[in-house]
C-alpha cells in the first residue's frame, strides 16, 4: 500500500493546548482546552442537548453497518451521549476522548471523532470516526481526524496512532490513507462480526511519519 500524502493544507493548532499533570513519570495526561477549532469545524465535548443530533445518524443502517453497534434507538443515543460527556481527557490506559464535530458556520452536529489511549508505556493511541451521511464527501472527517492526530502526536506525546476498520468499509480506509496512515494488518476470518466472518484492516502512523507530513522541509533523524 503506497504511502499517501494528504492533499489538504497542513492543519495548525489554533488553540493552545494545555497539558495537565506535566512532569509525572511516564504517565502524561492529555486534557485539551475546549472548544477546539479547525478550518471549518469546531470540536467540543458532547452535551445533553446532542441526543437528537446523534440519533439523526446513529439510527441509520448505513452508518451502523461496520460499527460494532447496531442502529441505535433514541434511548441508546441518550446513553451514548451520557457516556461521551465525560470522555474528554486521557489520564490512564483505555481512556477515550470522544468529541462532537460541529460545522462552525451553522453549528450543526455532523459527527464524532475519537482518540483512545491504548498503551501508556509504549505511547500508543487509536483514532476513530462516525459522521452523518448528510455531511460526508466534503473532507470534514479528514479535517477532524487530522486534528486528532495533531492532538495525539503533539500535546498527547504519542508515538504511534492506529485505526481499524472492516475491509469493506472503503470510506473509512480511504480516509486512513488520506491521513497518511500505512496498512499494517489485514486479518481474515479472525473473529465473528455481526454473524459472519470478520475481515479487518489495521492502519497506523508513527510520530516521525506525522512530523514529516506536517513539516515536509525539515530533515528528521
Amino acid at each position: 500500500m503506497a504511502f499517501v500524502l494528504p492533499q489538504e493544507p497542513v492543519l495548525r493548532l489554533r488553540q493552545p493546548l494545555r497539558k495537565l499533570l506535566e512532569g509525572q513519570e511516564n504517565a502524561m495526561a492529555l486534557y485539551p482546552t475546549y472548544p477546539l477549532h479547525t478550518e471549518r469545524l469546531t470540536l467540543r465535548p458532547f452535551t445533553r442537548g446532542d441526543v437528537d443530533g446523534v440519533f439523526a445518524y446513529r439510527r441509520l443502517d448505513e452508518v451502523a453497518r461496520y460499527l460494532f453497534d447496531h442502529p441505535l434507538s433514541r434511548e441508546e443515543c441518550a446513553l451514548a451521549v451520557q457516556q461521551r460527556i465525560t470522555q474528554i481527557g486521557l489520564a490512564e490506559v483505555d481512556d477515550k476522548i470522544i468529541l462532537a464535530v460541529e460545522l462552525s458556520e451553522t453549528g450543526a452536529l455532523i459527527g464524532e471523532v475519537s482518540l483512545i489511549w491504548r498503551s501508556v508505556e509504549a505511547r500508543q493511541g487509536e483514532v476513530g470516526w462516525i459522521f452523518d451521511p448528510g455531511y460526508q464527501g466534503k473532507g470534514f472527517a479528514t479535517e477532524a481526524a487530522n486534528f486528532m492526530l495533531d492532538l495525539a502526536f503533539g500535546p498527547g506525546d504519542m508515538h504511534r496512532v492506529s485505526a481499524r476498520c472492516d475491509v469493506r468499509n472503503e470510506a473509512s480506509w480511504r480516509l486512513m490513507e488520506r491521513l497518511g496512515m500505512r496498512r499494517e494488518a489485514h486479518f481474515r476470518e479472525h473473529a465473528i462480526f455481526k454473524s459472519s466472518w470478520d475481515e479487518e484492516y489495521i492502519y497506523a502512523i508513527l510520530w516521525q511519519e506525522w512530523r514529516r507530513l506536517r513539516h515536509p522541509q525539515e530533515e528528521i533523524s
Binding site: S119, E121, A122, H159, R160, E184, A185, F187, R188, A204
Partner: peptide, 25 residues
Amino acid sequence: RLEAHYREHALFQGEWDEELHFAIL
C-alpha cells in the same frame, strides 16, 4: 500468509518492537 506487520507498536526489552503475524485458515 503475512497478515500483519506492526512497527513500533510496543516496547520489548526497552526497545521499539517490530512484530509480524502470520495466519492460515
